[in-house]
Design a protein around this nucleic acid. Structure first.
Length: 473
RNA sequence: GCCCGUUUAGCUCAGUCGGUAGAGCAAAUGACUGUUAAUCAUUGGGUCGUUGGUUCAAGUCCAUCAACGGGCGCCA
């Protein structure tokens, strides 16, 4: 095979040196033919830039150039030489061109700009465009950065289950997982049953669903390994039809033993700063494209630099409500202590008032999840939402309730089943054996990438988006 | 789930007062001394989202469903 013999185009262009007997494997982006000379632009996915292959007039027929169209895959052998034209330092003079897979003239990706909406319909081809190539490479690099940060901080990577019998936190609607034959159940004689599904016959002998969060299991591991993080898919069956919700999305959830809310907020800030610095240092090609073509204000790189430079703001929910009440802006939903902050309120805080990432802490207990630690005022909990301009909530976290009796009370109040068979008895029991203060947060990977890139629809930041009524590809 | 908008050539869109359809780009063909999403010329390409209604006549008006886009709620 040629796989190990070929050179990657990114490497050839980065070196920029003359070199003989080079092999490239890639796809034709464009072909320009004139009387005396022809050009092929080849991209192999290793980077944004194409390599230019120059074909002299006498060779146009020899290489059967008429059969090689935009989209075709080719194997080209030849020599890298200094370019005679402008726009590239080196170019390729081919000795052989082999057509591996042809592309017909109705290849959907034309030599023109396509709308993102159209490209979503051809998700099997859109990674071959400049923008989506860059997005996918950026995604990969930033995923690596996530691991790099936590591993560097001494965290262990934890794999939490995807199928689970518990509905984590009531974080949302869940996708049921079953091997029961629904058609058979539907056709069953109603006189025989009592209308109740017998889950003892199901695969796990109990109702199960796809996980909405790995947090509760991560807490188990944190109380053994100290610091852990999850980075995996989560599933929410809410019919959210917006530019920032997916039914299947990747989430990063660190969980830290011996940490309080202040530590949690500090870690979130360190994390975002690390990621911003990583993108600036290691994703220049990607950030330049985002800055130039995606972000209409061309301030994406500046935004990342500001994340690195400036300290995040921390404001209590109570103070945030005061800021909003004193704001001159009229809100569609009036602000009052005790309400959950609406999108417009969050946007005002982060975009108009602070103009940078803001951590809002200490929310009223009634609007937050049962596992968050009750503050001494008995009215608020040690919760934290990190809000960023344009995207809104990017991180949600809290210090967890580590006191047995407090947690038990909260679980009773929230109707959380506490049996050990199907309920969260084990979660409560963790507080019985060497309980420690601990805290963590969840960061939506897609929202992070939206924030850093300026891509405004979450369906363009993940290669194969799952949304209500859409699970194609 | 709610509100608003869109649906016409492969793509992006025009289409006036209801009278059977247009541009740019793309493609094909040709021209062109090194091009950079080349340029220039020519050609082909349409069940006007679905179903129904009003009308002598519907891309155009009305209803319906659907898909897509944007906003809201829920959240990450």
């Amino acid at each position: 095979m040629d796989y190990f013999k070929r050179s990657r185009i990114k490497a050839l262009l980065t070196e920029g040196k003359e070199k003989n007997d080079v092999m490239i494997l890639g796809w034709v982006r464009t072909k320009r033919v004139s009387k005396n000379v022809a050009f092929l632009e080849i991209n192999d996915g290793s980077g944004l830039k194409n390599i230019q292959v120059v074909i002299e007039a006498t060779d146009i027929e020899k290489f059967n150039l008429s059969s090689i169209n935009t989209g075709a895959s080719v194997k080209i052998m030849g020599n890298l030489v200094k370019s005679l034209g402008k726009g590239q330092s080196v170019e390729m003079q081919p000795t052989t061109i082999e057509l591996l897979g042809s592309a017909p003239e109705d290849y959907p990706l034309q030599k023109k700009r396509h709308s993102n909406e159209f490209l979503r319909e051809i998700a099997h081809l859109r990674p071959r465009t400049n923008l989506f190539g860059v997005i996918n490479r950026f995604r990969s690099k930033m995923a690596y950065a996530v691991h790099s940060f936590f591993q560097g901080q001494g965290f262990y990577y934890a794999h939490t289950p995807i199928i689970t019998a518990n509905d984590a936190e009531g974080a949302g609607e869940t996708f049921q997982v079953t091997t029961l034959n629904l058609q058979k159940l539907l056709n069953a004689d109603p006189k025989k049953g009592n209308g109740i599904i017998d889950y003892s016959q199901d695969f796990f002998a109990s109702p199960t669903n796809l996980s909405v969060s790995g947090q509760l299991e991560a807490e188990i591991l944190a109380t053994a390994l100290g610091d852990v993080y999850t980075f995996g898919p989560t599933f929410r069956a809410e019919k959210s039809n917006t530019t920032r919700h997916l039914s299947e999305f990747w989430m990063i959830e660190p969980e830290m033993a011996f940490a309080d809310l202040q530590t949690d907020a500090k870690m979130a800030e360190m994390f975002l700063k690390y990621l911003a610095q990583y993108a600036l240092d290691n994703c220049q090609e990607e950030m330049e494209l985002f800055n130039k073509f995606v972000d209409k204000t061309h301030t994406r790189i500046l935004t990342l630099e500001n994340i690195v430079k400036s300290d995040f703001e921390t404001v209590t929910y109570t103070d945030a409500v005061k800021i909003l009440e004193n704001a001159k802006k009229k809100f569609e939903f009036p602000v009052k202590w005790g309400i959950d902050l609406q999108s417009e309120h969050e946007r005002y805080l982060t975009e108009n008032h602070f103009k940078k990432p803001v951590a809002v802490i200490d929310y009223p207990k009634d609007i937050k999840a049962f596992y968050m630690r009750l503050n001494d005022d008995e009215k608020t909990v040690a919760a934290m939402d990190v809000l960023v301009p344009q995207v809104g909530e990017i991180i949600g976290g809290s210090q967890r309730e580590d006191r047995y009796d407090y947690l038990e009370r909260a679980m009773i109040k929230n109707n959380i089943p506490m049996d050990n068979e199907h309920g969260l008895g084990w979660y409560l029991e963790l507080r019985k054996h060497g309980s420690v203060p601990h805290a963590g947060f969840g960061l939506g990977f897609a929202r992070l990438l939206m924030y850093f890139s300026g891509v405004s629809n979450v369906r363009d930041i993940i290669p194969f988006p799952r949304t209500p009524k859409n699970a194609r590809f």
